[in-house]
Amino acid sequence: MNKVIGSRIKDLRINKKMTLKELSEKTDLSTGFLSQLERGLTSVATDSLLNIAEALEVDLSYFLLGTIKKRENFIKRSYERDIYKLDDSNYINYVLSNDIEGKEILPRIIDILPFSRGEIQEYNHEGEEFVYVLEGIITLFVNGSEYSLYPGDTAHFDGGKNHCYINNTNKMGRILLVNTRRDISSINNGRV
């Protein structure tokens, strides 16, 4: 998966006539790291990949589309869940759909590892975001405000607001996360 993501980053960067140095300046990631990432020699944290997506003017899902096995069936069995974990990340993502290309929502279950606080890096994106807490106590930051969410709690907000999720406890946290995208047809054009 690292090679696929790296290749997509490189292709987009070159198509936009952007140098590694320019991408580095836009993302605050070193040129050495970006070079290794483009060659598939290293992995990337979700928040860093989101910064790259924003700098290249695409949705985060652009890098993940096609890395997930596409099935003809519209039903996805629990044992068929595709898992993608971006190493050095505090999140393990489970894609809940067989085919996210051309769809308006991106449904996922996300496990948030214990003590994921670290540096709080809020991000934003087009569309809406809906979260339902399945397990654990999750801290949601939206535009700098902090909210504690417990099992059964939900939040629904504009993805354009700066936000992030962390787990300050010693137990795994699990959320159902559904994102919408306003201009889903532009995936095929390389811009979401």
Rank of each mutant, 00 (worst) to 15 (best):
E128Y: 10
L49C: 08
I14D: 02
S89M: 09
D183R: 13
L50G: 07
I120L: 05
G40L: 13
L49K: 06
I137K: 12
M18V: 02
F157W: 05
S116A: 06
K70P: 01
Y62A: 09
N98M: 07
I109G: 00
Y94Q: 09
K16A: 04
E135F: 09
H163M: 12
R13F: 07
L65D: 11
I5E: 12
L60T: 04
N98S: 12
I110L: 04
N168W: 00
N90L: 00
K70D: 14
I100C: 00
E128T: 05
T27N: 13
L29Q: 07
M1I: 12
N93K: 03
R13N: 09
T139G: 02
R39S: 15
N51Y: 11
K26A: 03
A45T: 10
A55W: 03
L29C: 04
N167W: 02
G160M: 08
I75C: 08
T180Q: 07
A155N: 08
N189Q: 10
N90P: 01
Y150K: 07
K85V: 10
I138D: 07
E128F: 10
V178W: 05
N73S: 15
N98L: 08
G40F: 12
G160K: 10
T19V: 03
E72D: 15
E135I: 03
S89V: 08
K103A: 13
L96D: 02
S186L: 14
K171T: 12
N93D: 12
E57G: 09
Y79M: 09
S24V: 02
K16D: 06
S30Y: 03
S148P: 02
A53D: 11
K16E: 11
L50V: 14
G102S: 10
L176Q: 01
M1G: 14
N15W: 00
F141S: 12
Y147P: 01
N168E: 15
S30F: 03
R71T: 09
R191W: 04
H125I: 11
N189L: 13
N188S: 08
S78F: 05
L176K: 01
S43W: 07
V142A: 02
Y84S: 07
E119Y: 01
I110P: 03
I138K: 08
V4S: 15
D87V: 08
E38L: 10
E146T: 06
M1H: 11
I112W: 07
F63E: 08
D59H: 13
G173R: 01
L177R: 04
D28V: 01
S61P: 00
I105S: 02
K76A: 08
Y147K: 02
F157A: 09
S24Q: 01
L96K: 00
G173C: 04
D88Q: 13
N162S: 08
H156P: 00
S97M: 03
V192P: 07
L50S: 13
P107W: 03
K76N: 10
E101P: 01
Y94M: 11
T27Y: 05
F33P: 06
E80D: 15
